[in-house]
Amino acid sequence: MFDHVKFGVSDYAASKAFYLKALEPLGVAVAGEGQPTYGVELIGPKSKASLCLFQTEEKPAHLHLAFAAENRQQVDAFYRAALEAGGKDHGAPGLRPHYHANYYAAFVIDPDGHNIEVVCQDPEA
């Protein structure tokens, strides 16, 4: 749906480390990087869309970013990795039937307070 999402972070090194570790289970890696004020571009193995982070002192409103997982095991792995990377629990992996019957997601808060979700919307294999 989008080509890329770019947003500012207050601690570039901490946020870069958080996203690399938290999204590693999804195969996300660095596609390119410049000075912290330019930032880093992260991309998944089967995606053309990227996530870009850059250093800023501005305080934007908190975001909710949802990443697609191929299966529920990736959702579980994201949650564990994100907590290990310093994220704060905002919803353990599980079904969210109020969205729909197969909505399996986990939520964490990143170093800047953004709500990061990984979701698998397919039935369990």
Score class of each variant (00 low, 15 high):
residue 105 A to H: 01
residue 6 K to E: 15
residue 75 V to R: 00
residue 44 G to V: 02
residue 99 Y to C: 07
residue 108 V to Y: 03
residue 83 L to A: 10
residue 106 A to P: 04
residue 106 A to H: 02
residue 10 S to P: 08
residue 107 F to D: 04
residue 101 A to G: 08
residue 92 A to Y: 09
residue 27 G to I: 10
residue 110 D to P: 03
residue 93 P to A: 10
residue 3 D to Y: 12
residue 110 D to F: 00
residue 34 G to D: 08
residue 66 A to R: 03
residue 77 A to Q: 12
residue 28 V to N: 06
residue 27 G to V: 04
residue 41 E to L: 13
residue 89 D to T: 03
residue 3 D to R: 14
residue 101 A to Y: 01
residue 7 F to L: 08
residue 37 T to P: 11
residue 57 E to T: 13
residue 118 V to P: 01
residue 22 A to S: 06
residue 17 A to G: 09
residue 47 S to G: 10
residue 89 D to V: 03
residue 30 V to E: 01
residue 73 Q to D: 15
residue 105 A to L: 04
residue 105 A to Q: 03
residue 119 V to R: 01
residue 108 V to T: 14
residue 93 P to M: 13
residue 37 T to H: 13
residue 1 M to W: 09
residue 28 V to W: 06
residue 52 C to V: 08
residue 21 K to F: 07
residue 108 V to N: 07
residue 28 V to S: 08
residue 69 A to R: 05
residue 115 N to E: 07
residue 71 N to M: 13
residue 68 A to V: 10
residue 27 G to K: 07
residue 40 V to I: 14
residue 9 V to S: 01
residue 8 G to R: 04
residue 96 R to K: 13
residue 54 F to A: 00
residue 125 A to L: 14
residue 5 V to T: 14
residue 108 V to Q: 11
residue 53 L to I: 02
residue 32 G to V: 07
residue 15 S to V: 02
residue 74 Q to D: 02
residue 16 K to G: 11
residue 92 A to S: 13
residue 110 D to G: 04
residue 26 L to T: 07
residue 75 V to K: 01
residue 114 H to I: 08
residue 42 L to M: 11
residue 64 H to G: 10
residue 109 I to N: 06
residue 17 A to H: 08
residue 5 V to L: 15
residue 85 A to C: 08
residue 86 G to K: 03
residue 36 P to W: 04
residue 30 V to N: 03
residue 32 G to K: 06
residue 78 F to A: 00
residue 90 H to K: 12
residue 91 G to V: 06
residue 89 D to A: 11
residue 21 K to M: 11
residue 107 F to H: 10
residue 4 H to V: 04
residue 36 P to V: 01
residue 15 S to L: 06
residue 100 H to Q: 10
residue 8 G to C: 03
residue 80 R to W: 01
residue 71 N to Q: 08
residue 8 G to D: 01
